[in-house]
Structure formats: structure tokens, C-alpha cells
Amino acid sequence: MKNTGVLVQKEFREHSRNFKLYWIPIVFIILGIVEPVTNHYLPQIMESVGNLPEGSDFMWPQFQGTDIFVSLMGQYQLIGILIIILAFMGSISGERKSGTATLLYVRPMSFVSYFFSKWIVINAIVLGSLWAGFLAASYYIRILFGPVAFGDILKFVGTYSLWIVFAVTVVLTLSASLSTGAAAGLSILILFVFQVLDSVIGAFWTVSPWKLSIYATYPLQGDSVPTGYWMSLTLTVVLIVLLFILGAYMSKRNASKTTV
């Protein structure tokens, strides 16, 4: 593992110089601010735009701060995960295709270090962005909707973060295993289509990584710990470990496919 540091430095330089280190957090923070602001000022915005029928006295739902956290998570579930897929689908497959990987693979480098360096740096960028987004949202929610218990936010963000690590690991492992296009397609299937399937027919089971985003909201709803919560967390951690092993193995197996 002595080469891990060099490879981590390379990944950080890469994402700093292709600006992912900057634009991804900015987008997550913008989402985190826009969500409470639009929800709070929606009635006024609609009135000022003025396309409500004359004299109508529309009742806007009274949102709580906790609702905004949940709806912001909805934004991250769609836009956030789409960004993760699009920004990182070529992390390994792209290096193979362009041939830039060749001059790494001919060196005495462990593929566990190689995969780990990408995994840790992408997770750092994505989790940092996610936390910055939720932090900005917390500030705005506190001003516009009133405070939400910090412990509840922490539990919520903590659970949701594990799902995000799962999403990153899925994308990276697929990038190690397949071409960039196939990795993107399969990532969308696993992270979006399976999510929909799980919510449609998932009433029959309680343990699944795709339920983590719903389970994550329990502290905000004032609910008790849902059945299957701890098992889902455990299963997701196990899946992340298995995907990591598969990803490191596949990067090594596909090393000879690099363009020479």
C-alpha cells in the first residue's frame, strides 16, 4: 500500500484541475440554498408572477423545516446521483480507453491501492459536497422555518451518506468492469430503476440499500427506528465491501485492455 499516497495525490490533482473539486460542491450548495428559499417564498413568488386567478385564496401547505430537508434529499436523489454517475463513470474505463493508464499499470502498483485512491478521493469530493449542501440548507432552514434538532439532522445525513457511498462504489466498480457507456447505463439501472422498483414492490421486504433514503428520514418525521434499518445499514456496508473487492479485481483483470 506504499503507493497509495502518490495515487491519492494524482487523483486530487486531477479533480482539482478538471474543476470537479469545485463545481460539484458549488452545485450541491446551490441546491441546498434554493430548496428552502423557493419553498418559503413560493407563495410570494407565485403572487408576484401573478398568474393566479383573481380573488383566489390558495392555501399553501405549511412546511416544517424537517420537510425541507426531506425535499432537498429528493433533489440530491435525482440531480446529485446523476452528477455522480456522469462525473465519475469514466474514472477507470476512461483511463483504459485513452491509454493514460498504461504508464501506471506497467509499474509495481497494487490495484487495491489504485482502486482505493479513486474510491477515497471521489467519496471525499461527493460527501464533502453533500455535507456542505446540507449545512447551507440547515442555515437557511433555521432562518426561514425555525430550528431543527441538530442530532436529528446528523442521524439523517449520516444514514443518507452511506447510501451515497454505496452509489459512488457502484459507479466506480462498474467503471472498473465495463466500458464508460455500459458503466453509465448500468449505474442508472441500479441507482434509479432499482430505486423505483424497490418503492413499488418493496413492501414485501424491509432490508435493502434502496430503502436507506426513506429510512434516513425517520428522525425528521419523529418516528422510531424503522424495522430493517440496522439490517439495511449492515447489508449496505457489506455490499460496499464486496463491490470494492470486485472493483479492485476487475481493474486488475481489465488492465491488459488498456490502449498501448
Partner: peptide, 20 residues
């Protein structure tokens, strides 16, 4: 040979040396 275009020559050569 294909290189990471966003690295400088010295950065790349140092990385290569460290990895080896």
C-alpha cells in the same frame, strides 16, 4: 505514450519514479 494532460512534466516524472 499517453499522458495525463493536466499534469506537468516534472509532476508526471516524479509520480512515475515514486510508483516505481
Amino acid at each position: 505514450p499517453k499522458f495525463f494532460p493536466w499534469l506537468t512534466a516534472i509532476e508526471f516524472t516524479e509520480m512515475a519514479a515514486r510508483l516505481s
